[in-house]
Every structure is written in C-alpha cells, then in structure tokens.
C-alpha cells in the first residue's frame, strides 16, 4: 500500500484489516482450542498447507497495515513538526516493511507447494 494512503482509503484499510485480524484470530483460536495438541510437527504440518500459509501471511500483512495507519494517525495528531514526523514515519515504514519481509521468508520456508 502507498504510504500516501490517506483519508477515506486509510480509514477503509484500517477497518478491513481489523476485521480480517479479528476473523483470523477467532478461527486460529478454534483450531488451536479444538485440534490436537500443538507441537512443532503440527505447526509445521498446518503452515505447510498453501491455503493456511496464505491466510497467515495476509494476517501478518493486515497487522502491519493496521499498525501503519494507527501509528500514523497518532503521529499526525501529536507530532506537528513536519521534518520530525517524516523521519519517524520513514523509520516506522522501514521497520514494518522489514517485518513483512521477515514473516514472508519464514512462511515461504515452511510451505510445500
């Protein structure tokens, strides 16, 4: 998503990502709660299925998008100095993107296509 997403687009992205995070967590809790004990082999078996791997990746991306919009909202309110706000936003974007790449690498290393 563009770091310029603002107004309606940012608001909508935050709502949609929030809804997906909620939905994923409910399903994940049901799977964990009602399935067999979760050990390494079961985690591995679950996440090697492409559908679950993709759903999990979308879950982590949703968290990153949700965090981006939320933290940017706070910064726009409280950090009035443009240069300082821009630097913090850049740092935040860098951090979130690296986390996105990291989680993708982990998920890709497990999935069996």
């Amino acid at each position: 998503m563009s770091i310029h997403a603002q107004g309606m687009r940012a608001w909508l992205l935050q709502r949609l990502s929030g809804a997906y995070i909620g939905l994923y967590l409910v399903v994940a809790l049901l799977v964990i709660g009602f399935g067999p004990t979760l050990d390494y082999t079961r985690w591995h078996a679950l996440l090697s299925q492409p559908a679950i791997s993709i759903a999990t990746m979308v879950f982590f991306y949703s968290i990153l998008i949700h965090a981006w919009v939320g933290i940017r909202d706070v910064l726009v309110d409280y950090v009035q100095l443009s240069a300082l706000r821009f630097s913090i936003l850049m740092g935040l974007a860098l951090g979130l993107i690296s986390m996105g790449i990291w989680v993708s690498m982990i998920l890709f290393s497990v999935v069996s296509l």
Binding site: Q6, G7, M8, A10, W11, V76, D77
Partner: peptide, 8 residues
C-alpha cells in the same frame, strides 16, 4: 476526503 478535514 484527505487526512485532516474529517478523518482526524
């Protein structure tokens, strides 16, 4: 629309 007028 935009970040300020309403979405604050």
């Amino acid at each position: 629309d935009g970040p300020y007028r309403m979405f604050r």
